[in-house]
């Protein structure tokens, strides 16, 4: 092996591999092993049952909606925090991390109280005919709340590093503000945005605690996949629970792989050659 300047590779590599094996691979392996104890027919019957399919649809559509909402709002929030100096900026900056710190059940209960038909937000919304709590809209809000920091925190550092001279250069070349945003700023944020999007989406797919309080959990209507897996668990039907969980695992893994590919493509200009 080639000599290395920095010491400690065997030790750190060893610790890392053991850690990854015990904390990440072992539980996931057990999950797949459990799911595999079902025959292919049983497996397929469980994961493609009508109730499971409905839960995928609810989870994925709500996660998509929440992620799109976060894309716009998170980008705007990061933009404001980085670009402008205003009283309370640091406070806003600190608030962004709150959804990370708050126990998700607490967030779920708080959101449910606010958006219930007699809550502060729920009452006026109900008056104009919009029901939030116990509908998919409630799921979207809970997902958006818990995954907002991902977009802000991935985009923020890249935005801070953007060279203001690039925007000035675009101005001297006659570009309008919109053209500068679309052609100069956005393409440079794209890799970070993609990373933030995929994390936000993955978190939304997996969110449980915040959602079950606000969702109402009606099968076929507002039942998320994570909850269905939990229900099977409570019925001591471990293989069925593992089967449903394996679908989520597969979905999350595929999505992260695709985003990584897209990110590499978006960053191809940084490759020296």
């Amino acid at each position: 092996m080639a000599r290395r300047i920095l010491p400690g590779l065997p030790l750190t590599l060893g610790i890392t591999l053991v850690y990854v094996a015990i904390i990440v691979v072992l539980p996931l392996g057990a999950l797949i092993f459990k799911a595999a104890s079902l025959g292919p027919e049983d497996y397929w019957r469980i994961v493609s049952s009508e109730r499971a399919m409905a839960s995928y649809r609810v989870t994925i559509l709500c996660a998509l909606a929440a992620t799109l909402f976060n894309l716009v709002f998170g980008l705007a929030l990061a933009w404001v925090i980085v670009r402008y100096r205003f009283p309370g900026r640091r406070f806003v900056d600190a608030l962004v991390d709150l959804p990370f710190a708050l126990p998700t059940a607490v967030a779920g209960i708080a959101l449910t109280t606010l958006f219930a038909s007699n809550g502060w937000f729920g009452a006026p919304l109900a008056a104009i005919g919009i029901k939030v709590a116990y509908t998919p809209l409630g799921i979207i809000i809970a997902m958006a709340f818990t995954s907002l920091p991902f977009i802000v925190r991935t985009v923020q550092p890249v935005l801070e590093e953007l060279d203001p001279a690039l925007e000035e250069a675009a101005q001297t070349l006659g570009a309008s503000d919109m053209e500068i945003f679309l052609r100069v700023i956005l393409p440079q944020l794209a890799p970070a945005l993609l990373a933030g999007l995929s994390l936000s989406f993955a978190r939304s797919l997996g969110e449980f605690g915040a959602i079950i309080f606000i969702a109402g959990n009606q099968p076929f209507e507002t039942e998320i996949t994570a909850l269905l897996a939990f229900i099977r668990l409570e019925e001591y039907d471990y293989p069925a629970s593992a089967a449903i969980a394996s679908v989520m695992l597969f979905a999350a893994f595929t999505m992260l792989a695709v985003t990584n590919l897209l990110q590499a493509r978006a960053l191809r200009y940084t490759v020296k050659g």
Binding site: E168, A169, A170, T172, G174, S176
Partner: peptide, 16 residues
């Protein structure tokens, strides 16, 4: 600046 019709070359190039 965008209507002034100047060409500006920046110290650190500012290429996109």
């Amino acid at each position: 600046v965008r209507h002034r019709g100047v060409g500006f070359v920046f110290q650190h190039y500012a290429l996109f």
